[in-house]
């Protein structure tokens, strides 16, 4: 089951839990499942069926180009991170 790292600002939804395990074949399905256990998380992460602008998904430390469509494996670690930039 994928492990999800909950950003600090969203740990209010999970009762302070930093990591939770949740089923999900894709990031989108995982977020929907998260919301069933921790109501409000989906609205915090998504606008409709898409990730909110400015939020990226990293799986096992690597930012995914597929975002919410990223397929997940059982042993994946999923992180929600701000989109990135540089000079």
């Amino acid at each position: 089951m994928p492990t999800v790292w909950i950003p600090k600002a969203m740990q209010t939804y999970t009762g302070g839990e930093e990591t939770v395990e949740m089923e999900g074949r894709t990031v989108r399905r995982l977020i929907v499942a998260l919301d069933e256990t921790y109501p409000g998380l989906k609205d915090a992460l998504m606008d409709g069926d898409k990730l909110k602008p400015g939020i990226a998904v990293a799986v096992n430390g690597q930012v995914s180009q597929l975002g919410h469509l990223q397929p997940l494996q059982e042993d994946n670690e999923v992180f929600f991170v701000p989109a990135i930039g540089g000079g």
Binding site: K50, P53, V63, G67, A83, I84, G85
Partner: peptide
């Protein structure tokens, strides 16, 4: 108003 650039930001 907002241009979503995916992993490159908004």
């Amino acid at each position: 108003e907002l241009l979503n650039q995916g992993t490159a930001g908004v």
